[in-house]
């Protein structure tokens, strides 16, 4: 009797080890919060709202998958929000001139923006914090310039290009399926390719990764590249969902995407994380946001909640035995 309770305790203890703590707490919070929101407003759980939540989650989840790679290197990407804004605006404008080909052009833009971040960081040896802070400012301004600093509506002639957005499979909207497919692709890259392994290794111990003979620069650039693609896909989702290109639509998503990755167990000190788990973080954040809307919490208060959430998530994932805390 005692033995079994002892082993159950051990299992609980190992589950609660710092490594899994944030993931378990996130899942628990999702369950608890959902119950709380349902208790306050039963409409939270209707299928219409679930579809809403999954739709809202899609751009955040996509961007979290991308930035997770960068965070695993112990670097940071602050530009993904404005790359997303810029993508949304570009898609809206390009629909008018080149039609559906705009999707491809925008994704190519995301690739280039990511490559630029990666090359600034590796070849010019600019810390990623500074490099992406600057590109953030640049892409934000480009988005404002293209759009004339106002939201651009998608006019009826281009509606056929975004008709597909309305497709749902039961309660699951197609945008969520797209996010899921991108996550799958990114998981394969992380777990099954040399470059994915290199990213984790160099996040943990860069000098060892170098001496082992791994291609450090390639891995760093790839991480920013994947983050750039994810940001542009996020921007596309914003645009087709809202039927307009809003030049500041991605701004607040920087913090939320980093928070999603951290809540899903990616350590900002690098070397630790799992792309798959970003769903927990993105889910939690959107449920909190949606729930706060459903129970009518003021929008400014919501931002305070998110700020606090990021701090808690990062604290839980930090390796507290480490003396230094470096963001490269």
């Amino acid at each position: 009797m005692n033995e079994t309770s002892g082993s159950v305790l051990d299992i609980l203890k190992s589950m609660l080890s710092s490594e899994n703590l944030s993931k378990i707490l996130s899942v628990a919070s999702i369950v608890v919060l959902s119950l709380v929101f349902v208790a306050i407003n039963p409409r939270f759980m209707v299928s219409r709202n679930i579809t809403n939540i999954l739709n809202d989650m899609s751009p955040l989840w996509v961007m979290a998958c991308g930035v997770a790679f960068v965070l695993m290197l112990s670097s940071i990407d602050l530009s993904l929000g404005s790359i997303a804004s810029c993508s949304a605006v570009m898609l809206t404008v390009l629909f008018n001139s080149i039609g559906p080909g705009a999707y491809i052009v925008v994704i190519i833009y995301g690739m280039l923006a990511g490559l630029i971040n990666g090359m600034l960081h590796t070849y010019l040896k600019i810390p990623s914090f500074i490099a992406t802070l600057c590109t953030q400012s640049i892409w934000q301004s480009v988005a404002l310039l293209i759009s004339g600093a106002k939201p651009l509506p998608m006019l009826p002639p281009v509606w056929p290009y975004i008709e597909w957005v309305k497709i749902t499979f039961g309660v699951v909207p197609i945008l969520f399926i797209i996010s899921f497919l991108l996550m799958l692709l990114y998981t394969v890259i992380q777990k099954k390719t040399k470059v994915g392994r290199t990213m984790l290794a160099l996040g943990e111990n860069e000098s060892a990764a170098r001496l082992i003979g791994l291609n450090i620069n390639q891995a760093k650039i790839t991480a920013f590249f994947l983050s750039g693609i994810a940001a542009s896909v996020g921007g596309i989702i914003f645009a087709v969902k809202l039927k307009s290109g809003i030049p500041t639509v991605g701004a607040q998503y920087n913090l939320m995407a980093i928070a999603s990755a951290a809540l899903g167990g990616v350590a900002l000190s690098g070397g630790k994380g799992d792309i798959l788990m970003t769903i927990i973080g993105a889910g939690l954040i959107i449920i909190i946001q949606n729930g706060m809307n459903v129970i009518a919490v003021d929008g400014y208060w919501q931002q305070i909640v998110f700020g606090a959430l990021v701090l808690i998530a990062i604290y839980m994932n930090a390796d507290h035995n480490r003396r230094d805390l470096v963001v490269k």
Partner: peptide, 24 residues
Amino acid sequence: PQAALKNGILSIPKERREESIIAS
């Protein structure tokens, strides 16, 4: 070192924790 490895050269470095294992 990556280029050396392509030519069949690999080192086993002195400081194991800092230079050769990925602890995690």
